[in-house]
Design a protein around this nucleic acid. Structure first.
Length: 543
DNA sequence: AATTCGGACAACCGCTGCTAA
DNA sequence: CTTAGCAGCGGTTGTCCGAAT
């Protein structure tokens, strides 16, 4: 139980503050700016507080205190018990090691799967993930994930199997349900906060049949993962973490995001801001198709890409309105509970976050949103969409599983919102039907009716490249060239390089109905299951 | 046997959000 | 409304240990 290092275990002399002060592990407050163990800056109680591993005696003191006073008010621990630990440290120790019902030991296979599932859904929201794993702490999960990440990086494989989300075993579903009822649902929290949480692809998440496309479901988009060697193309390109949404919602103008990079990061698509780099991405993607690993991870950046998931994505796509599928705050279980067509009663604060299927919006406002959205969102949505549209005619039954939600913002299409409500409808076959219809223009008609500004000012001919959503891209690189009067074919050309011709679409059905439209497939990335996910979840499989 | 390397784990640190004064 | 304190979260670092070389 007590995981304190043996070295510390024997060091009971530090139990009492007096002796503890003499311990070399004490923070004298002289280094690191005087803040003790990250505890309250300038706190008087921080003087002479101990750092480092906890001893069993310290644990006993803390346990006794919590037993008598309950959790919380951690700063009072030091005052009341003389324990030379700051409240922060006490809380951490309690939460991670001392509180009852903690499950120790290695993660079970089911837990591992669940973690991956949850990470795919929630990103680096360790605490949230921990809520779904009884007896596990956020720290444990975080450590596990980081270790796994490193392992995958070393092995040159993606951290996600493309279909993990629809392979959650029944017991995990039960677990999810169980926990979702014990906590205030994050969805509710978000909605109360004014976030619109679209009802998107609930089924795929837990269904054993429907794939969940990371393309639109994954929360944080790691810029680096676009080109992270060895991890395949990151096939989800949206940024919808709550923080990001908040940040985005503060943007003054939707267009501002297009004209300048958000935050301090690189310019939008900086990593692929040239045809050469686009091509590299494709090569990278293509090369990774062959190893049966579909996708990269938005978490990969946590590794060696100097990316912090907590940082807002610097790419213009932060303006993506993809609300949703990723819906990072949504309790996965609630997806199952929510009927198709259910909508948040709370109006969104920012139309940018509107779901395409939002109801209760006037046609005019929808149209406005449509234009707005098309103007300002979906840089990569557009890319993806472009690829999907391009390939819709030749590969019925592939692509467009989940990312449609961000595109179909046009009134004409919204008219169908009742049936096409959210991407749940996608999973129900609407898009499949469209694709199966083999109407060359089916997707175009459905998804991109509303002209982008550039479209309007150029040719109305749908057959021209200018009609493509690439006009939404907003890449500096694109802008430069378009501003210089170059034809939009340049843009399309880049898209071709990015998504295009050298990708061989190979629809690969996973579910019996053959409707695996995961975005990975859209990009020609193979689907693979846990069974063929070599070593990504089983340590023993790794070299 | 010694060294190296990677995994696992624990803890620290900085930041953010909430809340009460 | 402002501000300080607190709790919590996520990123990072440090340490230990076992396996491999």
């Amino acid at each position: 139980m007590d995981l304190t290092h043996a070295k510390s275990e024997g060091d009971l002399g530090v139990l009492l503050p007096d002796s503890a002060v003499n311990s070399p592990s004490f923070d004298e407050g002289s280094s690191g700016g005087g803040s003790v163990a990250g505890c309250g800056s300038g706190s008087a109680s921080g003087m002479g507080l101990k750092k480092g591993p906890w001893t069993s005696a310290e644990d006993a003191i803390l346990v006794e205190y919590v037993k008598n006073h309950g959790e919380g008010n951690w700063n009072a621990v030091q005052k009341n018990t003389g324990l030379a630990r700051c409240g922060k440290s006490c809380r951490l120790r309690w939460a991670n090691h001392l509180r009852p019902n903690l499950k120790k030991g290695a993660f079970s296979t089911e837990e591992e799967k669940l973690i991956i599932e949850l990470h795919a859904k929630l990103g680096n929201k360790w605490a949230r993930m921990a809520a779904y794993l009884p007896g596990r702490t956020d720290n444990e999960i975080k450590n596990y994930w980081n270790t796994r990440l490193k392992r995958c990086q070393r092995a040159g494989i993606p951290v996600y199997p493309s279909n993990i989300c629809y392979q959650i075993p029944a017991e995990d579903q039960h677990s999810l349900n169980e926990y979702s009822t014990t906590k205030k649902r994050t969805r509710d929290l978000l909605e109360e906060s004014g976030f619109f949480i679209p009802d998107l692809t609930p089924e795929p998440y837990l269904s054993t049949q429907e794939p969940l496309s990371y393309a639109a479901n994954l929360p944080d988009y790691p810029t680096g993962s676009i080109v992270s060697p060895g991890y395949g193309y990151c096939n989800y390109i949206y940024s919808t973490s709550p923080n990001q949404v908040r940040r985005l919602s503060l943007s003054e103008s939707p267009l501002s995001a297009m004209s300048e990079p958000l935050n301090d990061g690189p310019a939008p698509l900086e990593l692929t801001d040239s045809p050469e780099n686009f091509h590299k991405v494709i090569e990278f993607s293509s090369s990774n198709r062959n190893n049966s690993y579909g996708t990269g991870s938005h978490a990969l950046l946590n590794g060696n890409n100097n990316f912090s998931a907590s940082e807002p994505i610097s790419m213009a796509p932060t303006k993506f309105e993809l609300p949703s599928l990723q819906d990072t705050e949504t309790d996965p279980i609630t997806w199952l509970d929510r009927p198709v067509g259910g909508h948040s009663p709370t109006p969104p604060h920012d139309s940018l976050y509107h779901s395409p299927a939002m109801t209760g919006t006037s046609a005019s406002s929808l149209h406005s949103e449509c234009n707005l959205s098309l103007q300002n969102s979906g840089l990569l949505d557009a890319l993806v969409h472009e690829a999907q549209v391009r390939n819709s005619g030749c590969r019925s039954g592939s692509g467009l599983k989940s990312s449609g939600s961000s595109w179909d913002l046009c009134p004409e299409n919204l008219d169908r919102s009742n049936e096409y409500d959210s991407t749940a409808a996608v999973g129900d076959g609407l898009l499949e039907d469209l694709l199966a219809s083999k109407e060359p223009d089916g997707l175009d008609a459905m998804l991109i009716r509303a002209p982008s500004p550039i479209q309007e000012e150029t040719s109305p001919n749908r057959e021209t490249p200018t009609q493509k959503p690439d006009t939404l891209l907003g890449l500096d690189w694109f802008r430069e060239r378009t501003a210089k009067g170059k034809h939009h074919s340049v843009v399309t050309e880049a898209i071709s390089m990015f998504l295009g011709e050298n990708i061989c679409f190979q629809p690969k059905s996973v579910n019996p109905s053959g409707s695996n439209y995961a975005f990975g497939n859209t990009l020609g990335l193979h689907t693979f299951s846990w069974n063929n996910m070599a070593g990504t979840c089983q340590t023993s499989d790794f070299p």
